[in-house]
Design a protein around this nucleic acid. Structure first.
Lengths: 205, 205
DNA sequence: ATAGTAACAAACTAGGTGGTCGGTTTATAT
DNA sequence: ATATAAACCGACCACCTAGTTTGTTACTAT
C-alpha cells in the first residue's frame, strides 16, 4: 500500500476513535491507551504521528468537529428560503440524531466547552472559535431573513442567535437521560412559539 | 470544643472546598489530595468521615447543590405574583452572579450532568433528581400563572419549563468565555420576547 | 487519674497516566 | 538486491491516583 495513504488512514482512524472515546468518556477520563487498544496500535505509533495528547485533540477539533458543525449546522441554513423553516428543520434533524443516541456535533461542542472551561485555555480557544463560526453564520441567516421579509426588522439578530444556540446546547444537556423524544417534541414546539414572536408582522395583506 | 461540632465543621469544610474544586476543575480532574491540601488535612481525616470519593460527591450534591438550587432557583418564583416577573428576576440574579464569576448553582448542576453523563449512572441519578425538582417546581409556577390569568391557557407548561431550563443551561455554557455581560443582556431580552408570546391575550380590557 | 474513642497523621499499596526511546518491520526508490 | 526512510512496536520511566493501614494525639465520660 502507498505509504502516504497508510499514514493518512492511520491518523484518521486514531482521530475518529479518539473523538468517539473523548465524547463518550470525556477527555481527561480517556487515556491514549484506551484509543490505541481499540485500534490495536501501540504508543509508538501514536507519538510518531502526534506530538502530544493535547495537540491530538486540537487536530480532532479542527479536522472533525469544526467540519461537521459546518456541514450539519451551518450549510443547511444558508439558503434564501424562510429562515424559520431552515433553522427548525436543522434543529429537528440534529435532535433526532440525539434521540437515536448518535453523535450530535453541536452537543459534542457544548460538552467539550464545559469540560475544558477554566482548565485548558489553549483548547478552549479552539472550541470557542468553532462556536463563534456557528454564531456568526446564524446571525447571517437571520439578517438575510430580515432582508427577505420573514423576520421583524426590529429584531436583534445577534440576540436571537445567542438565544437559539444556548437553548439548543441546553436541551441537549437535558436530553442525556430522561425521555429524549418527549423533550425534543416539547422543545421544538416552543422554538416555533418563539419564532412566531419575532416573525415579520404582515400589516393587512 | 464539642466533638460533635468539630466533626460537623470538618465535614462541612471538606464538602465546601470539595464542591468548589469539583466545580472549577471537574470531578475526575480533582484529586482528594487537592481538596485536603487546601484544608491542610490528611487522607486519614477524609476516609474517617467519608467512605469513598463517590459517596463524598453524592453527599455534596444532596447537602449543598440541591439546597442551593432550591433556595436560589425555586423559592424565589413560588409567589402568586406575575410569573414572568418572578422568573425573569430569578434568571437575572442567577446570570448576574455568573457575570461576576461566582458560583451559579443552576450552571454547576448542568456542568456536572455533562461530566457524568454515560460515565457514572449512580451519580447521574442524583443529579437528575435535582434537575427534576427544579423542573417540577417551574411547572407549578407556570400552572399557577395560568390559573391567575397571566399565562395563555393553551400553553403547555411542561414544554415551557423544559424550554426555560434548557435555554438557561445553554446560555451559561456560552457565558464561560466570551463577554458574559453582553450575552446576559441579549439572552434576557429574548426571554422577554418569548414570554410575550405565551402571555394571556387580554381580550379588550 | 484513667480508659476509651473520636479525629486525625503519615507512610504505603496497587494500579493507572502521559510520554520516551531503542529497536523492528515494511514499503519504496534506485 | 540493496539502501533508506517511514511506520510501528513494546518495554520502560517518573509521576499521580484512590484507597488502606497503622500509628498518634486530644478530648471526654466515669
Amino acid at each position: 500500500m502507498n505509504k502516504n495513504l497508510k499514514r493518512m488512514a492511520t491518523m484518521q482512524n486514531m482521530q475518529k476513535t479518539g473523538l468517539e472515546l473523548f465524547y463518550t468518556k470525556g477527555y481527561y477520563n480517556t487515556s491514549i491507551d484506551d484509543i490505541l487498544k481499540e485500534l490495536s496500535l501501540s504508543k509508538g505509533a501514536f507519538y510518531y504521528h502526534f506530538s502530544s495528547k493535547e495537540d491530538f485533540f486540537i487536530e480532532i477539533v479542527q479536522n472533525l468537529l469544526a467540519r461537521k458543525v459546518y456541514s450539519l449546522l451551518i450549510e443547511p441554513i444558508e439558503g434564501h428560503e424562510n429562515p424559520f423553516e431552515l433553522i427548525t428543520n436543522c434543529f429537528e434533524d440534529a435532535l433526532e440524531t440525539a434521540v437515536h443516541n448518535e453523535m450530535d456535533f453541536g452537543f459534542i461542542l457544548g460538552n467539550f466547552i464545559s469540560e475544558f472551561n477554566g482548565r485548558n485555555p489553549k483548547i478552549m480557544k479552539h472550541l470557542n472559535d468553532v462556536l463563534k463560526i456557528w454564531e456568526v453564520n446564524l446571525v447571517s441567516t437571520l439578517q438575510r431573513g430580515k432582508f427577505n421579509g420573514y423576520i421583524d426588522r426590529h429584531t436583534d439578530s445577534e440576540a436571537v442567535a445567542v438565544f437559539l444556540i444556548s437553548s439548543f446546547l441546553g436541551i441537549r444537556t437535558m436530553m442525556v437521560e430522561t425521555a429524549p423524544s418527549a423533550l425534543k417534541y416539547r422543545f421544538m414546539h416552543q422554538i416555533k412559539v418563539y419564532f412566531k414572536a419575532i416573525e415579520a408582522k404582515k400589516e393587512n395583506v
